[in-house]
Simulated scan of single mutants.
Amino acid sequence: MLVASLPPRRLGVPVEGARLHFGRADAASGGGTFRTRYLYLEDDPAFELSLWCGTCPFLFERQGGANGTLSAALGVMAVLEGPLEAVDDQVLAPFASLLPEGEFLPLLLEVRPELVAPHDDRDYFSHEQVTTWGTDRFWGLPENPRSFYYRTFETAVSPEAHLYEFVVPLVPPGWNDRVRVTGYRSAMARGVVPTAVALSTLDVCQPATYDESADHHAHWGLTHFLLDGHHKLEAAARSGAPVRLLALVSVDGSLASADDLARLPDLLSRPRGARPAT
Rank of each mutant, 00 (worst) to 15 (best):
G65L: 06
M77P: 10
L92D: 07
E81N: 10
L51H: 07
E81D: 10
A78F: 01
R35A: 14
Q90N: 15
L49G: 12
L92Q: 10
R62W: 09
R35G: 12
E42F: 08
L74V: 04
F47P: 11
L41P: 00
L92W: 07
E81V: 02
F47Q: 00
Q90S: 15
V79M: 14
R37V: 12
L51D: 14
A28L: 15
T36G: 12
L49R: 05
E48F: 00
A73L: 15
L70D: 00
T36A: 14
P57D: 03
S50L: 05
A46L: 12
A78I: 03
Y40H: 02
V76Y: 12
Y38L: 01
C53K: 08
D26R: 02
D88G: 09
Q90R: 15
T33A: 15
L80Y: 06
C56S: 14
A93L: 14
T69Y: 02
L49P: 09
G82S: 13
L70M: 01
D43M: 14
R35P: 07
D44T: 13
F34N: 00
A78P: 09
E85K: 08
C56R: 06
P45G: 02
A66L: 01
D44W: 13
A27K: 03
G54I: 05
D43G: 13
Y38V: 00
A66E: 00
W52T: 12
P45L: 06
T55L: 04
A46D: 09
D89H: 09
F60P: 13
A66K: 03
G64R: 06
A27M: 11
R35C: 10
E85D: 09
A27P: 01
A93G: 02
A73D: 09
Q90Y: 15
V79K: 11
F60G: 06
A28R: 11
L59Y: 09
A27I: 12
A66Q: 01
L59D: 07
L59R: 11
D88Y: 03
D26P: 07
G54A: 03
F58E: 05
A46H: 02
G75V: 11
Y40I: 00
G75P: 13
M77R: 11
A86S: 14
G54P: 15
G64L: 05
D44A: 10
E42S: 08
A78H: 02
F60K: 01
C53P: 13
L74A: 01
G54Q: 07
S71E: 14
G82D: 11
L80A: 07
D88V: 01
L92I: 12
D88Q: 00
T69W: 02
G30R: 08
F34P: 04
L84Q: 05
L84Y: 01
Y40V: 03
E81S: 06
